[in-house]
Amino acid sequence: MSTHSSTVHNSLGEQIYQSTGQSVACCYQCGKCSAGCPLASETDYPPNQILRLLQFGDSTLDEKALRSLTIWQCLTCQTCSARCPQEVDLPKIMDFLRQESWRQGRAHPKARNIIAFHRSFLGSIRMTGRMFELGMIMDYKRRSLNFLQDLLLAPKLLFRGKLHFLPHRIDGAKQVRRLFDATARKRGRTE
């Protein structure tokens, strides 16, 4: 894909442009994304500042974006992109940053639980083709060492028939696993 003259050569912004088509230069820092972000006050960098970090094309600042907690806390609710006057698809950029941060092992320490959740979630699908809630939760607890969480909730859910004990393995499970492994190879990341 062609490079974009508005992004600095070899910067994270350029990689973002190449892989998502989004130019960080389009952001004029109006802050409408941060104004509407449900989690702006909980993050280390509100969304507009993540873009600001990327606009310099400076490796130190790029690293700050990759190591930020924001990218992990982003809920992908898409409020920012739906209202952005410059049509910047910020959730797409967040996805890219998460993927890179994870791949490069630069995720924020506080993102541990979130990554653990994603691992458990995807692991469950990779095993059976579908997400098995109970198994996923158990696996998450193992990964996050959060054994006490929701201890009181689980029996209530079981009582209401909301948790199944056994996973459902689909016929195409092997196909799904091949798909997982192929995409992982393509990204140079192993599960």
């Binding site: 941060s34 104004a35 702006a40 006050s41 960098y45 509100p46 507009n48």
Partner: peptide, 13 residues
């Protein structure tokens, strides 16, 4: 009115 102050680093206002 839900805004943000970008001079305060995007702080919600």
């Amino acid at each position: 009115v839900k805004g943000a102050d970008t001079l305060l680093g995007g702080e919600p206002i």
